[in-house]
Amino acid sequence: MQGPRKWDWTAILLMSPSVAIFLGLLVMPILVVLVLSFGERAEAGGYQAAFTFAQYANLPARWAAFRNTLTLAPLGTVLCLLAAYPLAYYLAVKVSSRNRLLLLILVIVPFWTSFLIRTYAWIFILGGKGLPALLDMIGVPDVRFINTPFAVLVGIVYGYLPLMVFPIFVSLERLDKRLLEASDDLGASPARTFWQITLPLSAPGAVTGCMLVFILLMGEYLIPALLGGGKVFFIGNALVDLFLQSRNWPFGSAVAVSLVVIMLVTVTLYLRVTLRNRGMRDQALV
């Protein structure tokens, strides 16, 4: 016999902190930004209540920022993936377990220093007295790296590599080594085993890494500001300018809402892919 439905006070108590954080730190700010995006800029900057779609109509004025972000963020993600996969593979498969910990720590160590300082250091590495000077010495004059999209991509790959390495590393490390032996046993050469077994089964880690990197890159503003010389303009830079320089909060909010929409679409696609493969992943973990 089922009695009348009762409140499960323990569950409510346990959930309330996360619900409060979710509402207070995620839902509320997004609602505020949404409301602001339909307003107008006050005379001295800031927000003035109104209901207008003018801010959204004005979005094409930041087309270049969207274009730069939507080309360089995916490109940076792919480059990160290409750089991170071999490293993660090496760490998970090739290295002895004793050296593995040491090497993993080496991957993490840069995080002990501020991301700002580390990115700033690249200004000197890519600047005229850095790599271009070395190239000049070996007879390749007049190479310019700093303040180009290339420099921004270098900064992205450098800064986001660990975020990509770890999910891939975890999926490769969890990979049942007997599956590789089974493939070997059934006549597949090591290369074919990699393509047919290792790669597909580590794909969930790679997708997760790409997702992490891509989402953070969509909001990136430090790397383009420092290594792009203000000429490689991301949505993040447009937002900083709109909120802190021209103090056009409504327009900034409209840009931010668009960014959130783009990210929601991306995350939805990601969840679809991963949920479809979940059964496979659970099996892979056995």
Binding site: G45, R62, K231, D241
Partner: peptide, 16 residues
């Protein structure tokens, strides 16, 4: 300092 037209001009310049 506060002219929004200048702020937008600067934004166009940077984004160009």
């Amino acid at each position: 300092f506060t002219n929004p037209a200048r702020a937008e001009l600067m934004a166009r310049f940077k984004a160009a």
